[in-house]
Simulated scan of single mutants.
Amino acid sequence: MKQYLSIWGALLVASVTPAALAQEIKADAQAGAGKVAMCIGCHGIQGYQASFPEVYKVPKISGQNAPYIASALQAYKKGERRHPTMRGIADSLSDQDIADVAAYYANQAEQGGQAGQGSAVTAKAHDPSPDVAALIAKGACFSCHGEGFAKPLDPSYPKVAGQYADYLFSALKAYQHEGSGKLVGRNNPVMAGMAKQFTTAELKQLAGYIGSLPGPLQTIPEQRFR
């Protein structure tokens, strides 16, 4: 019972904190456009692949929820997410910068039209195999990310439908390393508890299915990269 309450307490903190920050700081997407110079070299190239500390495509973030982007950047800044490059970038941003950058990427998909991939949810999500359906039920994934993984129940949770499968797989593994001190670890008690239930092969199955779904996330190239 105590563990159950602690998980829901963490969920409450995760959902309240971004909202509280939003009341204190007014995000400016237009200002954010001038603050993404360090972002576009990876997130502004379709299919760009990171090579350290693990090889995977960098995530699509255009069209992602602004509160989630902001909370992720804050987590890198605090060391709750351990990735050397992202930690260095987040450390250079003020809270106002983070809010502006998050607003910019959340709004960029609407401005980018069909310039990116997966710019709209135009296809119906296909049903998972029985094995994957059992994994989704075991992880209670829909309780946060919503049916189809594209409509999270709170904007502080990410849209993940259509995200690169290899990135999702790497992120899920990172939650398994909570508290290990590894370069790729992520400290989130809810996601860590979920991810640690599964084998590596099962996480790969989940990531593959979620990545195959239609979703709103995009990578919109900068003009110089088109």
Results as ranks from 00 to 15, higher is better:
104 Y>G: 04
121 V>N: 01
109 A>Q: 11
132 V>E: 04
105 Y>W: 12
124 K>A: 14
116 G>T: 04
128 P>C: 11
110 E>S: 13
110 E>Q: 15
120 A>I: 09
121 V>H: 00
134 A>N: 01
104 Y>D: 03
112 G>T: 08
119 S>Q: 10
115 A>Q: 14
121 V>S: 01
110 E>D: 14
128 P>L: 11
108 Q>K: 14
124 K>G: 07
122 T>A: 14
108 Q>L: 15
110 E>T: 12
115 A>L: 15
109 A>W: 02
122 T>F: 11
120 A>T: 09
133 A>F: 01
118 G>V: 01
124 K>T: 13
134 A>P: 01
112 G>M: 11
121 V>M: 04
114 Q>F: 08
133 A>Q: 11
134 A>T: 02
118 G>N: 11
125 A>W: 07
128 P>I: 10
133 A>W: 01
122 T>D: 10
120 A>H: 08
111 Q>P: 00
127 D>N: 12
128 P>S: 10
132 V>F: 05
108 Q>T: 11
110 E>A: 15
116 G>H: 06
116 G>E: 06
115 A>Y: 07
124 K>N: 07
122 T>I: 15
119 S>T: 09
105 Y>T: 05
106 A>H: 04
129 S>R: 04
114 Q>K: 12
105 Y>G: 05
123 A>H: 09
112 G>S: 15
127 D>P: 07
118 G>W: 03
132 V>G: 05
119 S>E: 07
124 K>P: 02
116 G>K: 06
125 A>N: 06
113 G>S: 03
111 Q>C: 00
115 A>G: 13
120 A>R: 10
112 G>F: 08
123 A>M: 11
131 D>Y: 00
130 P>V: 01
118 G>T: 00
107 N>S: 15
126 H>K: 13
114 Q>D: 13
117 Q>W: 03
123 A>T: 10
130 P>R: 01
108 Q>F: 14
128 P>D: 08
133 A>D: 02
107 N>M: 13
117 Q>M: 07
124 K>C: 00
127 D>Q: 15
121 V>Q: 03
125 A>L: 09
122 T>P: 03
126 H>E: 09
105 Y>C: 06
131 D>E: 14
108 Q>M: 14
134 A>C: 00
129 S>V: 03
124 K>Y: 01
113 G>F: 04
106 A>Y: 00
134 A>V: 00
106 A>D: 10
129 S>M: 05
111 Q>W: 10
111 Q>M: 12
111 Q>A: 15
111 Q>L: 14
130 P>K: 03
125 A>Q: 11
129 S>H: 03
130 P>E: 00
119 S>W: 13
126 H>N: 05
111 Q>V: 15
115 A>M: 13
106 A>F: 02
107 N>Y: 02
117 Q>S: 12
118 G>E: 01
122 T>E: 12
123 A>E: 14
127 D>G: 10
114 Q>Y: 05
116 G>P: 05
121 V>L: 04
109 A>N: 11
123 A>F: 09
121 V>D: 00
113 G>K: 05
105 Y>M: 08
118 G>H: 08
